[in-house]
Nucleic acid binder design. Structure first.
Length: 476
RNA sequence: GGCCCUAUCGUCUAACGGUUAGGACGGAUCCUUCUCAAGGAUCAAAUCGCGGUCCGAUUCCGCGUAGGGUCACCA
């Protein structure tokens, strides 16, 4: 039973922040593990010390935690295959390298980088693909660690394998070469290290992007050399930039996943959106909570072709997930995102339902404030008095209507100053007029001072009886 | 350029070889409304092209075309 356990991993290199492409790969690996009650491993592939960016590991972990993709084994929490940082596993790679050397399947590279560059140029001039294996020498020296260690590829053949997502894939013998296992600085290459680790950690499903398809024959030749059955390959399609032309990259505006947290997206919405970029369970439901996502996840329903990133749909998805929250949770979040000054005002809690229907993500609250859509709730607005006029109604009539409004509203008790009661009171006047706007427009403008704003009943109920009457009085 | 792969509304996608090619986002129109937002209703919008197999092709095959990926002591 234990042997059948699903083990997946997310294995980023610590070269900067994590963007949506990496996040989706991690998500699929995580979903697969959770669905099968398996293990999800976080492994750090830091074998390129030049490209490494300080702080990346912490940043990646923070990103995964925000998304709620908790790992079962990893650098911070350990596990039965610790350590989970490749630079701390150098002896293990050495051990595997020795196995290949003993089998005569690995050898020290006798050439200098300049010589290899020359071979490459010659091949290019001949319009032939450059293959290192065509330059093998008989007189190789034993590997002393100062030269790169190369794999000596065995039988040259067409490689055919099966990918869970793409089906049967194949590549000709030109995909096989004597690639480097261990670099001259002592660190293993990705090609070597990840295969060793996946073998050591018992990884059953390798989930990764399609940029690795073309080097899969190399990986398979390594599994064969070690006499190990390869894992299942689950290759994900690329996420394209908003222009649909290129794979989403940092240059094309791929953001740090944590930027979405700063903008006030819900992690569950992000996960839902990400899961559906290149995956669809069939059926017409699109909004899924985390648990449902785990249940419906199905590797065979992952797409092969790239999907374009769409901020607008992400915003919609986020709103759908906000709607799933309780009223109390929504209120709590909105208050949290309001600037301190507004938050501490006693009308702030009453503003929540109104803000809720006007935002897709919490960060939109800041935009609302910047556009001046909330300030009139806190301070009486200033506006040119002509703005009170509705179409070509005379100023006298407007004034008269406002006076009628005051009279009606004064009848309402402060405790009964609700949206519904205000609406009834004002509508009883408005309905007798030629047009309701003759009353509703000036009242609304008196309260908000804006061409576009919520209706007067809502505003009045929020700012309260005294403030409402005072603003209408001022208008008169 | 070599090798590998992909192709359904603008976008994300659904459709045992048989459907009026479905849904969602976005858009348009209408309703609700003094305005905005929200909500409700309706509409427009796609099988890349050419051949082939088949009674029948979005689906299978071939060739084009377009797009993507990859050809490192990077992952």
């Amino acid at each position: 039973m234990e042997d059948n356990k699903v083990i997946t991993r997310f294995a980023p290199s610590p070269t900067g922040f994590m963007h949506v492409g990496g996040a989706r790969t991690a998500l699929y690996a995580w979903l697969l593990a959770r669905k099968n009650n398996g293990q999800f491993i976080l492994r750090i592939e830091d074998t390129d010390k030049v490209r490494e960016v300080e702080g990346s590991i912490a940043h990646i972990q923070k990103s995964l935690k925000w998304l709620g993709l908790e790992w079962d084994q990893g650098p911070d929490i350990g596990g039965s295959y610790a350590p989970y940082i490749q630079s701390e596993r150098l002896e293990i790679y050495k051990k595997y390298a020795d196995i290949l050397i003993k089998k005569g399947m690995a050898y020290a590279d006798p050439y200098t980088e300049e010589e290899i560059e020359k071979f490459r140029k010659e091949a290019e001039a001949d319009k032939k693909p450059f293959l290192y294996r065509e330059h093998r020498r008989e007189d190789v020296l034993p590997w002393d660690g100062t030269k790169p260690l190369r794999f000596k590829v065995g039988e040259l053949k067409r490689t055919v394998w099966n990918d869970v997502v793409w089906g049967e894939l194949s590549a000709g013998p030109e995909a096989l070469d004597d690639f480097i296992l261990i670099k001259s600085d002592g660190y293993p290459t990705y090609n070597f290290a990840h295969v060793v680790d996946d073998i050591e950690m018992g990884v059953t499903h390798v989930v990764r992007g399609q940029e690795f398809i073309s080097s899969t024959p190399k990986f398979l030749s390594l599994y064969e050399a070690f006499g190990v059955k390869p894992p299942l390959f689950v290759t994900t399609p690329p996420i394209m930039g908003p222009d649909g032309k290129k794979k989403l990259s940092k240059r094309d505006g791929a953001k740090d996943i944590l930027d979405y947290e700063k903008e006030g997206y819900l992690p569950d919405a992000m996960i839902n959106y990400l899961a559906f970029l290149g995956f669809n369970p069939g059926g017409e439901k699109e909004v899924y909570i985390r648990e449902e996502l785990i249940n419906i996840f199905d590797l065979t329903k992952i797409q092969c072709s790239g999907a374009q990133w769409n901020d607008v749909k992400l915003d919609w998805m986020n709103k759908e997930h906000i709607k799933l929250l309780s009223k109390e949770e929504i209120k709590k979040n909105i208050l949290k995102w309001l600037p301190e000054k507004m938050r501490n005002n006693k009308i702030a809690p009453k503003l929540a339902p109104l803000i809720f229907e006007r935002i897709n993500k919490w960060g939109d609250i800041k935009d609302m404030i910047a556009r001046g859509e909330l300030s009139f709730f806190f301070n009486a607005p200033e506006y040119p008095k002509e703005k009170l006029i509705f179409k070509n109604t005379s100023p006298e009539k407007i004034k008269n209507n406002l006076e009628l409004a005051i009279k009606e509203l004064e009848k309402l008790d402060e405790n009964n100053f609700t949206e519904e009661n205000i609406k009834n009171a004002l509508m009883s006047i408005a309905d007798k007029l030629e047009s309701r706007g003759e009353l509703l427009h000036p009242v609304r403008f008196a309260l908000s001072g804006l061409d576009k704003s919520p209706d007067p009943f809502t505003i009045a109920s929020i700012i309260g009886k005294n403030e409402t009457l005072s603003r209408i009085q001022k208008a008169i």
